[in-house]
């Protein structure tokens, strides 16, 4: 039996983020590494150095629009009657003190000390994933627009702000890409609980068994609130699974390609 974990909007948002993130990585790192063979072949994929920045800019605009849409979605999801509970409660991604506790407990557990923490709907690492994007995206958007229109920006701000913007844009991009391509991919694909792929974000549902194993408090809470029945879901169809397996592994391969080459060619570029 499956239980529902992500609704359609959430899955579409994630899919959108995957596609746009990979395009931004390809075009962005292609330009950053343009003095190397790696950068040139990446840029060639997107039509060259000049075309890459056009794509990079418009995909960035799409991401900003997506972010705006996400904010509207968040506002809509806040329960007007009880905003505190819906923002700070267990169904929210806002971190609370229990997350620190869970992290500490889980670290001990990896050393074989104590038991695994009983997690609710969102684990601390999932919250970290979410907030990393949440602050990274606006930072990249603002600095990106500044660099795309340096003359306009300098009407208001002194020119040296562009030096800072360029540095932040690059550093944040490297931070985001390395986190996604190493940690997020490892958690989503490689670790035993997920291998060969954590399907929840694509199918929208998880095995009940898995939910009980990973998120016992969540299942308990659903049962207690009487929401368990309506949370039941059909398992994903086979064709759909095959589809998102192909998609997931394509994304993984592309990310790894950028990561490995980025590290290899790292010494040929200037980061500031």
């Amino acid at each position: 039996m499956h239980i529902r974990r992500f609704n359609r909007i959430q899955r579409l948002s994630h899919l959108f983020l995957v596609v746009t993130f990979l395009i931004q990585s390809g075009t962005g790192f292609g330009r950053l590494y343009i003095t190397t063979d790696f950068g040139r072949s990446l840029c060639r994929l997107f039509g060259g150095y000049e075309a890459a920045i056009v794509i990079h800019f418009w995909v960035g605009v799409a991401m900003m629009a997506g972010f705006g849409g996400h904010i509207l979605y968040l506002l809509k999801r806040i329960d007007r009657k009880d905003p505190v509970k819906s923002i700070m409660g267990p169904d929210s991604l806002v971190p609370g003190p229990q997350d620190g506790q869970h992290m500490f407990q889980r670290i001990l557990w990896t050393f074989g000390l104590g038991s695994h923490p009983k997690l609710d709907r969102w684990a601390y690492w999932e919250k970290f994933d979410y907030w990393a994007v949440f602050w990274g995206l606006p930072l990249l958007a603002v600095t990106g627009v500044m660099l795309r229109f340096p003359v306009w920006t300098s009407i208001i701000l002194p020119g040296w702000v562009l030096n800072i913007a360029a540095l932040l844009h690059r550093a944040e991009a490297i931070l985001a890409a390395s986190f996604i391509f190493i940690v997020h991919f490892f958690i989503g694909h490689i670790r035993p609980t997920s291998f060969p792929m954590n399907e929840a974000m694509f199918s929208g549902s998880v095995h009940l068994e898995e939910a009980i194993h990973e998120k016992p408090l969540w299942v308990e809470r659903l049962k207690k609130d009487g929401k368990f029945e309506q949370q039941k879901a059909k398992p994903p169809a086979l064709w759909y699974r095959v589809l998102y397996y192909i998609f997931g592994y394509t994304a993984l391969g592309f990310g790894l390609y950028i990561l490995v080459n980025g590290i290899i060619y790292g010494r040929y570029i200037e980061l500031h």
């Binding site: 670290i107 970290f128 931070l175 940690v183 490689i190 670790r191 035993p192």
Partner: peptide, 29 residues
């Protein structure tokens, strides 16, 4: 920020992976 994030999460994720190897229930395979 970069070094801190990776220095925490990379070993942490690897440790979790290693620990899960000892837990039969964790396997999806």
């Amino acid at each position: 920020l970069l070094v801190g994030t990776l220095a925490f999460f990379v070993p942490h994720a690897l440790m979790v992976g290693a620990r899960e190897l000892t837990e039969t229930r964790a396997f999806r395979i």
